[in-house]
């Protein structure tokens, strides 16, 4: 009798260990963020054998961007800086002053992107990012003006209307064989 009571006293109460373990488990479950994948979403045009002739289009509607193997930018025939690309593209698409040499209306504007095989991917993506950002900002401005909120918070009809007014058209030509190391 006596000896059994002694043994009971010597045992540490381990009942709360489970709770501690659960607490740890839940803590890690909550704080761990499995690295999520983000990126620039692009919809490629379907493949066809014949090249689309962009030169047939009215040149005032085409915003051509060339990125060469030295990662320099040629925008509509003129040397440009990456930092100016976004505001420049926005101005071209909206054409607020109705200039003769810019897009007739946003619906007609086409961005033509061309690069060399030797162009660095990082630069290409940065250019693409800037162009996409220009369109995003324009859509935001349009949505703000017409619906009083940014594009992201618009309903699906409002979004569709915005997209129809300012369609994102980025045409990519086959790269020229220049500067590729392979």
């Amino acid at each position: 009798m006596g000896s059994s009571r002694d043994r009971m006293k010597n045992e540490i109460n381990a009942g709360s260990m489970a709770d501690i373990a659960f607490l740890l488990l839940i803590f890690f479950l909550v704080t761990t963020t499995i690295a999520e994948d983000t990126g620039v979403l692009v919809k490629l045009p379907p493949y066809s054998e014949e090249e689309v002739e962009i030169t047939k289009m009215n040149t005032r509607n085409v915003y051509s961007v060339l990125v060469n193997a030295d990662d320099q930018l040629l925008v509509r025939g003129e040397l440009a800086e990456l930092d100016d690309l976004r505001s420049n593209a926005k101005e071209f698409i909206m054409n607020p002053q109705k200039l003769e040499n810019m897009a007739i209306e946003p619906k007609k504007a086409i961005v033509s992107l061309k690069n060399d095989r030797g162009t660095k991917y990082a630069v290409y993506l940065e250019v693409y990012n800037e162009l996409k950002a220009a369109y995003r900002e324009l859509r935001d401005e349009y949505a703000e003006k017409n619906f009083g909120k940014v594009y992201e918070y618009c309903s699906s009809e409002e979004r569709a209307q915005t997209r129809a007014a300012i369609p994102l058209i980025i045409s990519e030509a086959e790269p020229t064989n220049f500067g590729d190391e392979g």
Binding site: G118, K120, Y121, Y124, P175, D180
Partner: peptide, 9 residues
């Protein structure tokens, strides 16, 4: 980032 566009294209 350092890949050239050839292989990407």
């Amino acid at each position: 980032s350092d890949v050239t566009m050839g292989i990407v294209a």
